[in-house]
Write a protein that binds this DNA or RNA. Structure first.
Lengths: 385, 385
DNA sequence: CGGCATTGTGTAAACGTTTTCCCTGTCAAC
DNA sequence: GTTGACAGGGAAAACGTTTACACAATGCCG
């Protein structure tokens, strides 16, 4: 069942079998045919471990994500896997569950299994591991957050464009009081999204209300809790932006429980455009980030850096850079290597603000209660005209 | 950076290093301490490939699922991974996307990477691969469908119990006209669920209407399409059972689009109880199947069969069975090794049927149209009293 | 005090590949 | 007919571990 068996049956050396199955062109076609025949008869499958051990390439690409149960990540994983398989690689998934201990274990696994590259889309990685990956000459690419120190490679997401579209959409509809539910602020990408939101607000002349900047955790529960916090506030916004779709779905649930309506009582915008966003009730207006783009860019970035000094680098570039220090430092220490576009997908959670803008909940402040006037007293509007 | 480096610095042989890091108890504590010190200083990580190559154990467990973007599977994967890690294993995920070609590639990968076991939760696997796994003495466990021929091991899900609870719940509420949206009927587990549904119907004296048995595909789109098919029918059921939650969410969407209400116009029951089910609008009544149970049972089943003839098997068992033929056939060819319980979780998509039971849409049949009377003409009921 | 377990360590042979290097042909050119 | 180049295939050395085996040192018992 091993290569020796094949060699014996095909009456060739194991070297020839190896060359044949690796499509080395110098093999005599007649011999190759004989080898292939035996390979198929025996259903011979080469042992990946032995292969990787001697060749130094595992044909494995690591992908470290935050949380596999957040539907965004499976969508990313799927795209990433397709991109990998198309290039002859497999992927090894690690999920950190937002715990740095788990993160460490993931990184360790990737090192132990000798991955040929790692894409990371989760919170900050320990410097220790960056050093290790660099030392072992394993290319890595960070999707979206810029960690503390200069990196070989970062894929930036154009938050500003998407969030700006969202904020403008709301502003055009007449919203002036917009809340933002961020992700965990320990995550740099969460911070980026929040900062992008604040910048957008500023650019259209609105001032943020600190009460309306809530820290969530990118989960359904977190979104629900955050919205409940907002509902308990003395002054209510008329629109909510969320830093991911799961949070927005949690918000929808909280509003449903409070017997409030979207978009009549609150407009709502998510982020990611997971497939589910089309299916929420009502369908979620959200900011799309292309998983496919992300995945293909990440893969290409990784593979292009596989053999530093060799490969498709234009010769002009290599002359301008010192060639040494390959082991400890990848010479291509470049700027964000690509930017992923975002764009607003308008569905049905955004509409005109129905409450007075400057005069939020006049009766509520009189009654000194946090609840809105009962649903029945307010005008009801059908979802579609 | 390899074991030799550690051995040299600790002034011991590589065998001692190997024994130390594998916690072989015969190592002298003083030496072990010296080794550990060097291991930590160097941040030595053993090469998994070399390890696996010589030891014959990859400490990798394969998990083949249908589709990673269906949230049920990430939940399963998470539990499975935890169960694996707790036992010192890692998992290798393959998703078939319901294509038998992809299934083949997955199985091939598992064989090439020399997994120590495989759990399969997707449609039927080719006999070829079953033979291969058996020949290589790789234990496998099938979650829920019983493939065509006798298997080493199957984990059965007690569909009947859960679906029966669901049907009875509907019957008690007064529903007599229940539709069922199945998964792809090429999948045996889909068939099982459908058959369980039919059996339940029969047991309470109801006859199935063939029009109301729709084949879906376990996706959001499939659920929506199926419900649209039902809505186009001349006679409408008052309740819908779905064979998974994603289908049910698709149904919710279709009803929302048609301006129909849950549970007023239709009662709805899902299956799986994914986390999202609590967050749909209204929250989904569904049949829970415990991922954790599934995962731990599958892992334990796999690991208990790892060393046939060796290990923790009680001696009585080994005497009653012929010991030979280990390579071609695992001797423990047993019945479904475990049954996973299911139970109904009542949320808010089930309620009293508001339409007449025997007399569906009398006006619709007169008008020869497929649409229900306009929403506004019918009584509206708030989600909660 | 000598043999004999016992305990712990080192040496070396695997594991299944890839890949380097060398050798044997074959063919063309002189 | 001899030489050189070249093509193609085989032998063997890696790759980094685990593990069987041998062997040295120690303690115990007679």
């Amino acid at each position: 069942m091993d290569i020796r068996g094949v060699a014996a049956l095909a009456r060739v050396s194991i070297a020839t079998v190896s060359r044949t199955i690796n499509h080395v062109p110098t093999v005599d076609p007649a011999l190759a045919a004989r080898v292939w025949k035996v390979v198929h008869e025996l259903n011979y499958l080469p042992n990946t471990q032995a292969r990787a051990l001697v060749s130094g390439r595992s044909r494995l690409i690591g992908l470290i994500v935050s949380e596999i149960t957040n539907p965004f990540f499976p969508e990313l994983i799927q795209e990433f896997e397709q991109a990998a398989v198309a290039r002859g690689y497999e992927i090894l998934i690690g999920s950190t569950n937002y715990e740095s201990k788990t993160m460490e274990i993931c990184a360790r696994r990737m090192l132990e299994r000798k991955v040929d590259g790692v894409a990371v889309m989760t919170f900050g990685v320990e410097d220790f591991f960056l050093d290790r990956f660099a030392a072992e000459n394993i290319p890595y690419v960070f999707i979206d957050p810029a960690p503390s120190r200069p990196l070989n490679s970062v894929l930036a997401v154009d938050y500003l464009a998407g969030i700006s579209e969202g904020v403008q959409h709301l502003a055009v509809l007449g919203h002036r009081n917009i809340a933002f539910i961020s992700g965990p602020l320990s995550r740099r990408s969460s911070l980026s999204r929040k900062e992008a939101f604040l910048a957008c607000l500023h650019s259209i002349g609105l001032k943020p209300n600190p009460d309306w900047l809530i820290e969530g955790d990118h989960t359904l529960d977190g979104g629900r809790d955050a919205m409940q916090k907002i509902l308990a506030l003395p002054h209510l916004p008329t629109a909510i932006m969320c830093s991911n779709d799961m949070t927005a779905i949690g918000v929808q649930h909280a509003l449903f429980e409070a017997d409030l309506r979207i978009p009549d009582d609150f407009s709502l915008i998510g982020f990611d455009d997971i497939h589910l966003a089309e299916y929420t009730i009502p369908p979620l207006t959200t900011i799309r980030m292309s998983c496919r783009d992300l995945a293909t860019r990440a893969m290409e970035n990784l593979l292009s850096r596989r053999n530093p000094g060799v490969g498709s680098t234009p010769s002009t570039a290599s002359t301008t850079q010192p060639a040494g220090g390959l082991d400890s430092l990848n010479p291509r220490q470049d700027q964000p290597s690509a930017t992923i576009a975002t764009r607003l997908i308008v569905r049905r959670t955004t509409g005109l603000p129905h409450r007075a803008l400057d005069d939020l909940r006049p009766d509520a402040s009189k009654q000194n209660t946090t609840s809105l006037p009962p649903r029945a007293q307010r005008q009801r509007r059908s979802a579609r005209p």
